[in-house]
Design a protein around this nucleic acid. Structure first.
Lengths: 213, 213
DNA sequence: CGTGTTGGATAATGGCGTTATCCATGCGTG
DNA sequence: CACGCATGGATAACGCCATTATCCAACACG
């Protein structure tokens, strides 16, 4: 198919597609002549994934580009590609390690990992962006006067572990080995809005049950 | 305290504080003279909340302004303020109701609510931004070839319901009645990064357990 | 043939968050 | 009591980002 059709089928303007092509987040079409290129279903699918990451997953374009770049980096094995792709996901500000509440949060997070027995995370996790993000969030909550410690976090952590089990089961039952990395990335990024929405709906529902209306 | 001290204690530049004052998301200091205003702990706290919503919760400044505006809108009762504040949180694109996958997703979400017995949500929820967001996410997953239906969502939904119970318990044990709305907003927005980080860490941990490394 | 679409490159646009610049004023320090 | 300097206040400038617009020469296609 040609650019116009790719645009129509994906709902993305030709100008934007050209932009993505320039950014290298969409493979060039098969050149069929000096002024024509041919796109196929794989291009359509990739384009849809890009838009999904951006629109639904709220990734900045540059981040989506980076993530996608790792997803099909043939010089890495599957594990590395996956790790790199997830590592590239957007993260908040760096924690200010000289801040007292950050240090305290650090201890609580460490303690949480110990309580949970997440030994792998404790060992490799030192540098994990997710760990840093967790520390920042906890420190922020504390600074706002909401005491938040390992005991309070643990129930959430156990719930999220169950969610992770479901995530991995989903990936296992599903995947065409070839696209496993892509599946994990999609599941990680696109389930986040699902979980967020479900939590907020559940809050409303539970709140209605408790307090009426 | 004066502007300079407020800036130093919050870690926000005076220029940015002035900007927030202009936006009306921070109450003006008590005028102490034609060229001086006096800020107190409540200003500092509010400023910290604003920065927390923006930095940790990733809210656009305009949204944070809106949310905060509802939090202390004295013309509304507590319930209304809370509803309006949560309603104002950012949401993805509108679902294209003419799209087949959107319609299908709609059905699945309806079915999910039925299965869960979330009757309140089913009744009032028609217009809820969270419901729309959920529909969009499900439709997107389906369009990418990941079949996603009520049965697959239900376990996540139950987990998130448990999370919501914890959320509300937290708010109940905590709150100085006066700041209850603020507490709910903070819990909703600031726990999201916590849950996101915990899920990703749990994924890594569980993945290591299953596949080694 | 000639009309209209293509790939390709470059520039323009619009929004957002922050920062910079100016200014008249009066605080407070010496 | 006088002077340097920070203040509140308003406006303009900046830098980034995502998208769109404009041109172009070359061709595909009816």
């Amino acid at each position: 198919m040609r650019l116009a059709e790719l645009s129509e089928r994906s709902g993305v303007s030709t100008a934007t597609i050209k932009y993505y092509l320039r950014q290298g987040m969409l493979a060039p079409g098969r050149r069929i002549g000096a002024t024509t290129a041919d796109y196929d279903e794989t291009h359509l699918r990739r384009l849809r994934l890009v838009r999904a990451l951006i629109e639904v997953g709220r990734l900045p374009v540059a981040t989506a580009k980076e993530v996608i770049g790792y997803v099909d980096d043939d010089s890495l094995d599957r594990t590395m590609r996956l790790g790199a792709a997830l590592w590239a996901l957007p993260h908040g500000p760096e924690p200010d390690e000289s801040d007292a509440s950050v240090i305290a949060a650090h201890h609580e997070v460490d303690r949480l990992l110990e309580v949970l027995g997440w030994s792998t995370t404790r060992e490799i996790g030192r540098l994990s962006p997710d760990l840093r993000e967790l520390v920042v969030a906890v420190a922020t909550l504390n600074r706002l006067g909401y005491p938040y410690d390992a005991e309070l976090m643990a129930p959430y952590a156990r719930l999220m572990h169950q969610a992770a089990v479901i995530d991995l089961d989903f990936v296992e039952t599903h995947p065409s080995e070839e696209e496993k990395v892509e599946t994990v990335v999609a599941a990680t990024v696109l389930f986040e809005p699902v979980l967020r929405a479900l939590r907020r709906l559940a809050q409303a529902e539970e709140s209605a049950r408790r307090y009426g209306l």
